[in-house]
């Protein structure tokens, strides 16, 4: 039988290189949660619609629920766990706290990773740009206004950083 059913991969997860042997059918979300205990990666729709499983791969946002772990070989993967520096929250995390931009918190890691990608690419977005960019992420608690407020506030804090 030709083709591999298991592959060896060496992704860099939150700045740490890891070596793993993974079945080719394993998704990136399964690998992050079940092999690496990165439970900030959530799973819900598993159809690329809700955004709770969002992580960055080489800086690009992906739905880790339907992205093969095999494809992460040699790539840099960023999850919510990699944002804070020790006890110091990332400005996006702090802004979400300050604006009460979460209730149950299930969607929060996905929103923050999407927002991180937006601000990496566009440090001074308009409110409309934030709304449009985040329309692929669903929140069922708060309504979206405080989330958008938090992202705009974090953008200001990041621009003010030296």
């Amino acid at each position: 039988m030709i083709g591999a059913d298991v592959v060896e991969i060496a992704p860099v997860i939150n700045d740490r290189e890891v070596f793993l042997s993974v079945p080719v059918r394993m998704t990136l979300a399964e690998m992050l949660r079940d092999r690496l205990d990165l439970f900030g990666v959530k799973l819900s729709c598993e159809m690329q619609v809700c955004g709770v499983c969002t992580v960055l791969v080489d800086g690009q946002p992906v739905s880790s629920c339907t992205y093969l772990a095999a494809d992460a070989d040699g790539r840099r993967v960023s999850t919510i766990e990699g944002l804070a520096e020790g006890e110091q929250l990332h400005p996006l995390q702090q802004a979400f706290v300050d604006h009460f931009a979460l209730q149950c918190g299930f969607c929060t890691p996905g929103f923050i990773m999407m927002a991180k990608h937006l601000l990496d690419r566009s440090p001074d977005p308009t409110r409309d740009e934030v709304v449009e960019y985040l329309d692929g992420n669903l929140c069922r608690c708060t309504g979206y206004a405080p989330i958008v407020d938090a992202v705009l506030d974090a953008a200001g804090r990041l621009r003010a950083e030296p």
């Binding site: 030709i2 591999a4 059913d5 080719v24 399964e30």
Partner: peptide, 12 residues
């Protein structure tokens, strides 16, 4: 385990 059915991967 897994949400995806089994398959094999070819890399031309």
């Amino acid at each position: 385990m897994g949400v995806l059915p089994a398959f094999r991967l070819l890399r031309p």
